[in-house]
Design a protein around this nucleic acid. Structure first.
Lengths: 368, 368
DNA sequence: GGATAAATTGCACACGTGTGCAAGGAATTC
DNA sequence: GAATTCCTTGCACACGTGTGCAATTTATCC
């Protein structure tokens, strides 16, 4: 109760109390076979009674191992990241590692401070779960001299290990689902133009249409930024097109949410008048009106996979440098058949089967 | 490039290179006035060139200060926590502290592991930002012997420092807003019965009605659990009542989202037929259909305040043990005047002014 | 019972950093 | 020029833990 927080008890204190040397205590607590089992048991009891807790700093100093993994993210406020973090954390904990969280909030100065903190605490590896990680960031991280694994990174990053969801395959999934429902006039509201995920989704969209014998209509591809406004503008633009689309594939769920809102205020019913499909499956997708049909990224699995990859690297093993995980379709209520006589010209199912998947799962060459 | 990660450079390496003792290097790098400025500058240059990064473990070992604050949360997946964490983090960083994140995911075994990790890394203080923190958790945390500050804790926790939003005042805000719009038939869909926040919101609801001369109708108070289902069930129950309410105050935004959905599927327009107000102002409240009017908790400020409080405690200063921060109304589009002739019987504005606020901002007595 | 092997323990050093104290050197004063 | 002060530097120890090696005790064997 009123005990002052003086100094924590160390193995020397235990040694003094037990009448042995601190080496013996150290060995007893670490379960070394070099101590008499009876003595060991006695010491363990005493340690527990004295409330001993090992000092991680002292241990890591002598073992030259911290057991800490740096986890770099822009902000926790992104609900998309939370699941990834959960996956990373779970695998890390199982393997006896701890996470050091470094958030930058996209502030260059804080990014630097974060990297310095990682360096000072001697992290053994780093996972970057922030797609918008600054351009300066990566070189600094590399200078740490520890293995790095990126999750869903937006740029081609050669010679770096990374895990990503398969945006191309996800887009194929989305568009062929719409084709299967009978749509042929399918639009795409894009994400940030420079983002690789956007480029891959666009590619999947285009090629799925072509494979189904449909020539993509440039008027049905509108730019965006991944935020709700983009969905609103996108719908407005699409409604001005000479021929209106009957379905819209959105770069992500936030865009789809904006699209839902714009559709509603334009007096369109979803999905009766217009089908809308998103991408990501954020927590909230289940609660939109109507609940959003979307392509789920395997967030949790990506976290787990990235951490497993890092563990391999930490053990000096070789790994494939680039891994893509498949997305899956989550059917809710924002998609349905097209309004009137929009009969598909060819069977979309056969088209889907014919599709090649140019996105190989292994990419780049091992670094020397 | 091909450089092996051998061993990091230490002050001894610098000392050897500079032809001085490691003490001089240490002093130079720490900016001690006990070194010749020219020597100091030379050493700093050399250190930078050699890529020196201080070892936090070694430093904390000798200074007996880790500069680490433990942050305990159930899960990052709760978007409500993200803002709190941001506030905590910002103040911590300003004061030169770092955060050690301990998530438990409500698993007792992991809770224990988390507390042990906090103890081993010798955190200097702890912030608990998880309302659902296990009952066992707190005693273990207390055993760490460091200051603890709770954020929005759901139980009365005597002799512990805490920061919370003022649920009572928030409820008063919500209900008097509805009164001002002209409603008199106001329902409450409650949260977890044992949660203090629910009790305070219920109290605010009841007393505001009474102060306006309205006798609360027990049929308009339905139980819930803070999740969307509760909102759906709640609306269904309320629609079966002999006299229907014209407005619903929900325990939180997730409940309100369920309520919105149920209202829609019952064919009610919001806010024309039914006004709905939430609590929390989660990220998603702005994107519901219609956008949700709600009571915003000062999440970011709560984080900042809790961390400031902890900083005071770390410096051995005294603080008020219990601090409540006011909520504020965020008007969006889910509330409006009642449908037909629901004329208020008394002026709700004057009622609001007469309201006492029995929730004092200071509570409990200082521990000895 | 003595010699040998095995089990158990302690000594001493290491990890990287910080700091009190004494020693050495330079600058100042008379 | 000698004495005094101040500035600068190095020595040595400390923090808490782990471990190779030698020393000691105990068990085993003939």
């Amino acid at each position: 109760m009123g005990r002052r927080a003086s100094r924590r008890v160390s193995i020397k204190d235990i040694a003094r109390q037990a009448g042995v040397s601190h080496s013996t205590v150290s060995r007893a607590l670490r379960g070394s076979p070099l101590v008499n089992p009876r003595t060991a048991e006695r010491i363990r009891r005493l340690a527990a009674r004295m409330g001993y807790v090992p000092n991680a700093a002292a241990r890591s100093l002598v073992t030259a191992r911290t057991g800490i993994i740096g986890l770099v993210i822009t902000t926790l406020a992104d609900p998309f990241l939370a699941e990834i973090v959960r996956g990373v954390e779970e695998v890390a904990l199982e393997a006896g590692y701890r996470l050091f969280l470094a958030t930058s909030n996209a502030d260059p100065e804080r990014e630097l401070a974060a990297v310095r903190a990682l360096a000072e605490s001697r992290v053994e590896g780093v996972i970057v779960a922030s797609s918008r990680v600054g351009e300066l960031y990566l070189p600094h991280l590399k200078a740490l001299g520890v293995p790095i694994v990126l999750i869903n990174h937006q740029r081609e990053a050669p010679l770096i290990y990374s895990v990503a969801s398969d945006s191309y395959q996800g887009a194929v999934l989305a568009v062929s689902y719409l084709l299967r429902l009978g749509h042929t006039r399918i639009a795409y509201i894009a994400g940030p133009p420079m983002a690789r995920s956007n480029q891959r989704r666009l590619a999947g969209y285009l090629e799925t249409l072509r494979a189904a014998g449909i020539t993509p209509n440039p008027a049905w591809i509108v730019e965006g930024n991944g935020r709700p406004e983009a969905g609103e503008w996108g719908i407005q633009r699409l409604l001005e097109a000479p021929i209106r689309p009957t379905a819209v594939f959105c770069y992500n769920d936030m865009t789809a949410i904006g699209a839902l809102r714009a559709a509603r205020s334009a007096g369109l019913r979803v999905p009766e008048d217009l089908s809308i499909i998103g991408f990501d499956d954020i927590l909230f997708a289940a609660y939109t009106e109507p609940p959003l049909t979307t392509i789920a990224q395997p967030k949790y699995e990506m976290g787990r996979t990235a951490m497993s990859m890092l563990l391999h690297l930490l053990q000096g093993e070789r790994t494939v440098p680039y891994l893509q995980l498949p997305c899956r379709l989550v059917e809710r209520a924002s998609c349905g058949p097209p309004p009137e006589g929009d009969v598909p010209t060819i069977s979309p199912l056969s088209a889907e089967r014919r599709l090649p998947c140019p996105a190989s799962s292994v990419d780049g060459s091992p670094s020397s």
